[in-house]
Write a protein that binds this DNA or RNA. Structure first.
Lengths: 250, 250
DNA sequence: CATATTTTGATTGTTTATGATTGTTATTGG
DNA sequence: CCAATAACAATCATAAACAATCAAAATATG
């Protein structure tokens, strides 16, 4: 049986049964225990299921995670490392703003300190935040269909009720002259205001974003801390002069 | 029996019985006392129940609230009929408010007219609304962990930017003297304001809600239209005198 | 066709969940 | 208020489940 077939069969069994033990998967796929374990590990990475001792269970909030889950298979390891580094800046009692996006999403499992309050404009983050037991606030506003981010006037005005210790933002481009940019001007406005309302603003960017420029600018290099992981092709030293830079040594 | 199965069984027993002895859990799950104790400790940590000497009890705030998943399997056919009737009142170009809740959720597939705008405080509704191609706005505010509804000051203030042609609301109790009631005062405030901002307010209630009273009142019978389906045990004529009543003949 | 890479299943220590046992704490009835 | 009793938390041994490792098989590549 081929890997995608097995994965499909596993998810199918889970849809039907909510909780399934390892041996059932073995019987259903005529594969070994080891293979099933590997499959389960992988599917958990992709956030398609939750492993439990003795088998696997369906994720509770499966409904609006799908789009995020698909995206997050790409560069997942890099993103997770960056996310982990970013999460280390968080202190007990902090009030955070988390941008909608896959990198910020990956931060959530690492947000383990006590007494956090998180404000976000990403509907997809809410479920996971609540499962972590984090007190969660959502901005209001128009829902952007493909990303499920909240944007527009409503989002801007409802953000004004909050102040943040730290804001964590994703980006599409980081450039020496043009700063941080993103394709959607609406989202750029939100990011810009989040930076203004935050004591410290962190931009999370994997190496592919450097020297890229997108349409709408939301920050200069000077006003944010950039968190990334190192890559030999990219020379980060030029950025170091303009911005506070934190790099994961992978 | 796997851990999530046990946890589910424990919570299920609690929903049915309000307060349950340790031995009942042991019998129901065929596990040892020690294991149940560990489970209870963990579930209390997750704020799913309250441990008491001799067993466990439901959290007070959650007394008559169930998770969305549990609710939505119950009375589904009835709810769907009510939802369908409610959706018939919707006209092209309308701007609607949809309450968070399972009955309002069931309305979405029937919202097939053109040019709708929907505002809601229910995160769970967003996905399905977008799939229907409806322009969707979400209120801001605190996210209520079990129901994923947006509540609190943030939700109230962000609602003030909108005006609705029609508001559709769920309820837990409908009573001749006490009007419409719901367990959570925070949610009641939201519902109340939605009614104030709407040209017409509709309350969707299956027959089990009649003559019931919950904690927080959000409307009198006079100011809303009630949509329900008929049931022989319940005499709706007394309600007819106080309120506009629409009944599905199932 | 030979070689490199990936996937698989068996084997191995290691970790985890469980149920029994222990001593400790809370409740109850006199 | 105190003793009796029930419920509790803590500890421990064990068995099940686990991750890590490795060699064989399947697959891909030059």
């Amino acid at each position: 049986m081929l890997t995608p077939e097995r994965h499909a069969r596993i998810l199918e069994l889970l849809q039907a049964n909510e909780v399934v033990r390892l041996q059932q998967f073995v019987d259903a796929t005529t594969s070994s225990e080891s293979t099933i374990r590997r499959d389960l590990a992988q599917l958990e990475e992709e956030r398609k299921l939750k492993r439990v001792h003795g088998g696997a269970a369906l994720l509770k909030g499966k409904r609006d995670e799908q789009t995020v889950a698909q995206k997050s298979t790409k560069n997942l390891q890099e993103k997770r490392k960056i996310a982990q580094l970013a999460a280390q800046s968080v202190q007990p009692g902090d009030c955070l703003y988390l941008d909608a996006g896959t990198t910020t999403y990956e931060m959530i499992p690492f947000l383990t300190v006590e007494d956090l309050v998180v404000v976000t404009n990403g509907i997809s983050l809410v479920n996971t935040l609540l499962e972590q037991g984090v007190q969660t606030y959502l901005l209001g506003g128009a829902v952007k269909p493909n990303t499920h981010a909240l944007i527009g006037r409503g989002a801007l005005t409802s953000m004004q009720s909050y102040r943040f210790d730290k804001a964590f933002l994703g980006t599409n481009g980081i450039h020496l002259q043009h700063g941080c940019t993103t394709p959607d001007p609406e989202e750029a406005m939100i990011k810009e205001q989040a930076i203004a309302l935050a004591g410290e603003a962190y931009v999370l960017a994997d190496p592919s974003k450097f020297h890229e420029v997108s349409f709408a600018r939301f920050a200069s290099l000077e006003e944010v801390r950039i968190i990334t992981c190192e890559e030999k092709e990219i020379d980060l030293s030029s950025f170091q002069q303009h911005s506070k830079l934190e790099v994961v040594t992978s």
